[in-house]
Design a protein around this nucleic acid. Sequence first.
RNA 1: GCCAACGUAGCUCAGCUGGUAGAGCAGCUGAUUCGUAAUCAGCAGGUCACGGGUUCGAAUCCCGUCGUUGGCUCCA
Length: 732
Amino acid sequence: MSFAACKGKSKSTKCKIKTAPRSCGGRFCTPTFHFCFLTMPEETERKTLDQRQQMTELERIRHSAAHVLATAILRIWPDAQFAAGPPVENGFYYDVELSHRITPEDFAQIEAEMKKEIKANHTFERQTVTRNEALELGTKGRLGALSERATPSKFKLDIIEGIPEHETISLFQNGDFLDLCAGPHVMRTGNIGAFKLTHVASAYYKGDERNPQLQRIYGTAFKNKTEMEAYFTMLEEAKKRDHRKLGRELELFIFDEDVGPGLPLWLPNGTVLIEELEKLAKETEFAAGYQRVRTPHLARENMYLTSGHLPYYAESMFPPMILRQEGPLHPLLDKQLKELDHEATELAKLVLTKEKLGAIAEQARITGDNPSTVIAAELETIKAVDVAQMIRDIAMRRLASSMLQGALLDEPEHYYLKAMNCPHHHKLFGAVQRSYRDLPLRLAEYGTCYRYEQSGELFGLMRVRSMQMNDAHIYCTEEQFEAEFNAVNEMYLKYFATFGIDKYLMRFSTHDPSKLGQKFVDQPELWKKTEEMVRNVLKKSGINYVEVPNEAAFYGPKIDVQVWSAIGREFTIATNQVDFAVPARFGLTYKTKENTEATPLCIHRAPLGTHERFIGFLIEHYAGNFPLWLAPEQVRVLPIGDEEPLINYSKEIVAELRAQGVRVESDFSSDHIKAKIASAEQKKVHTMLVIGNRDLEANNVSLRVHGKGNLGAKPRNEVIADLLQAIKERRA
RNA sequence: GCCAACGUAGCUCAGCUGGUAGAGCAGCUGAUUCGUAAUCAGCAGGUCACGGGUUCGAAUCCCGUCGUUGGCUCCA
């Protein structure tokens, strides 16, 4: 498994959960995985005018809303300088330079001006101009403005500079507001059915920190009020389901300053989730013919040099642990150094008294200076220039000897925390003689990895620095590849069914043949073959997928798996990658039927992603109301009152469930039954067994399920049998 | 990493323009013996993230550090 640093300028929210994954020109990194290992960063390509015309209706509305926003800001602050105002995933923004610092308190006033502009229902008039005309308008401050102004439209002028010679330059005007803009827009300002400003942020012009910092005003817009309300309702629901909030309330995990940022600690309730997921993965993988392995959390530098991770992505790894090796001086050097010291001392004696020398030696001992250097300095002060020079020479030679000594010693050893498991697994493949009979070999491990994410990237469980990955590497022959890849996809679908994920998308990333040898390993035949195989598998299995050209990993095509939570938010949780390059770097081979050596293909796969991210997703998906099999507290027994027979009956039920491996607790507090129920509901305990005297007499329990209320009294044995069955089949 | 905002009891938050900290829930103790979302009372809980500074006096103002959150060109 591989990873990459999201380096360069745009390393930001693209990789965050809230933003849909998209082309990031080789910087496409999912929140869990940085799988674009060895995918070289490249410049973002400029959008063509044709591409811009493909804006959806909603994007046009939002882009137009950005212009209306600018119009409104100018009405209030006429000297505002505008940069870019595109539609974005959930709305739009406009970057503005303005001495007044806009705060959410200003929103009402700005929105009022925007409403006026929408009510005026101005058309968006397009006109094309020559480069010179555009420059002139910019110089007069007319672009991104309501009228000509004393100061030029500096950002607009800069943007014009960036437009290629052959491209048409267009302007859009709504009312007084004239803007340099490639469009497209809606017909009239009145077509913006509903909008709202949401927040302010700062952003560098063109995202470059050397450029001035602008205020970025964010808003969203929709065709109509109903759609906008649905959006805000979804946001509120997301807030209620925020995994950080629920994680604290349900005591799933914590972060601790002393442990470090991005390093989650799992409380017992959260650990239940982890262990249930591992149980699921282990069962599923065992059935699919995987073998489990275990590897250490760190390794020597050399392995990551072999894998190719270190030369490119050291930044994304925790800095190395350095094992210093301080050995004795090399005998020859020791002798040479002693001679030099002697020489220096003899020379010094020519001009310095014994007492003075003693004092200097003592001083050097205290300060840790080289005595030769100190003596040289001392001689300097007493003008014994020639002798000083000679001694300085000796000091220099002494220094050179010390450096030589350093070079002769072994380099200090470096160990790195692993950022991925694949190199370790490759080592396991290579450790034993392999024959074609051993393939496919499927090595699975819930491996713990560490990645040094930038502090600004950390986000709850979604972006962490330590993670446990549902990892496995399948080593197979080309002939086996299709079946293996298909089996992996089948596994995904099975998991989706288990978790009630009904919306998903597989993004199939392929290579660009023109970039063979640069961005992609130069094996055109293998690319063609593996891509075709992956495509076949996807087509045949009827899996929902899209093909994304030019985004494959360096070593092979890949699939990123996007899923949508119950409230429709998108998460990128997992990946599959074909790797026909790295096994060769590790010299992995197997004996073929013809008794020749061949290098296996490798499939990296992690359907459940990492515990951190997957559980973060599940918390939102279930709003913390986990199905029985996952629920940290599956059952709570609540006796009505504390009479001894009732308590005994309750304890019997608890013991019986516990003996069957059910996570059951009891509430024998002196609270009234209503209070006991309230606290169990609040903790989202899945099943409550309320037990009163009526139940005791009939050998019943009163069943209450979280979120479903009272389901009435039922025979004890029936309820217990059904609980066990539901857990066993991981019923939703 | 950079910019910004935020950091008060376990949790959610109050604490005005500076006058040495407060509520609800949770916790503990006691009473209450109750049939499906909160019985009552009492007690205990804080170096106001940390470190400096200004001031007679700082949770409050200033600076720094740490942490959290939002943002950091899907371009005119």
